[in-house]
Nucleic acid binder design. Structure first.
Lengths: 110, 110
DNA sequence: AGCACATACCAAGACAGTCTTGGTATGAGA
DNA sequence: TCTCATACCAAGACTGTCTTGGTATGTGCT
């Protein structure tokens, strides 16, 4: 169910992935994980033990806020929404990720 | 001299960057750091406190080996060299990085 | 009826890897 | 003399992901 090989690459990008996922509208945690894994064809796996701590962290930092509601299937779910600060943070993180990954690509292309 | 903002993105990619740097021939630690920072135009900064532990780790894992020699400037320097196992590891890490970063890009392109 | 599986959340501690800070030592150049 | 670049190293802090375990409900298959 989980990757045998721990994905160290995720470090530092999970926040941006979550923020980006929320940029198109509120979603609950489980749906965020599904969206990221679906979009990346499981190239990026989101373990629940990483997801929820990340959500709490970002809520503490006011990048997102949450309220209880119901999922599409009518279940109890906590819906997360991007705050203005979160949108700013998202832009910054995407920019620094592009810069970083371009750098890495350049080294690999050596 | 060092980044004010801790670069969490480096997590998991430093090994691959070092291995790739050594793929073109032996180099000493300081030169590895210079090469990566130069190649990435400082988009990827290699702190010495990250570099040397990474080198010891990879030496322990037999991905690289080391011997004392002299640098281009005639100073005492420990020269690291890629082992066959290291070359295999490099290929695997580059492949998984490409897969991962393609996934992240896909999410960001949403 | 029984059972597996998907949905949805959460907590606690393990763990890995980078960063901070401090140190050693030499040589070049102002 | 003093600073900066070169070159290495150690110890502990810190951050963030993973592992493992748990709660609870609904659906579908046999």
């Amino acid at each position: 169910m989980s990757p045998r090989t721990t994905n160290a690459l995720l470090h530092g990008t999970l926040d941006a992935l979550i923020l980006k996922t929320l940029a198109s509208g509120p979603r609950h945690g489980y749906a965020i994980a599904r969206f990221i894994e679906d979009t990346t064809a499981d190239a990026v796996l989101v373990e629940e033990g990483s997801l929820y701590p990340a959500l709490y962290r970002m809520e503490r930092r006011r990048w997102i806020d949450a309220e209880w509601g119901t999922s599409e299937l009518g279940r109890r779910a906590k819906l997360y929404r991007l705050t203005p600060a979160g949108r700013t943070q998202l832009a910054a993180e995407v920019a620094s990720w592009r810069r970083f990954s371009a750098g890495v690509s350049r080294v690999f292309a050596t």
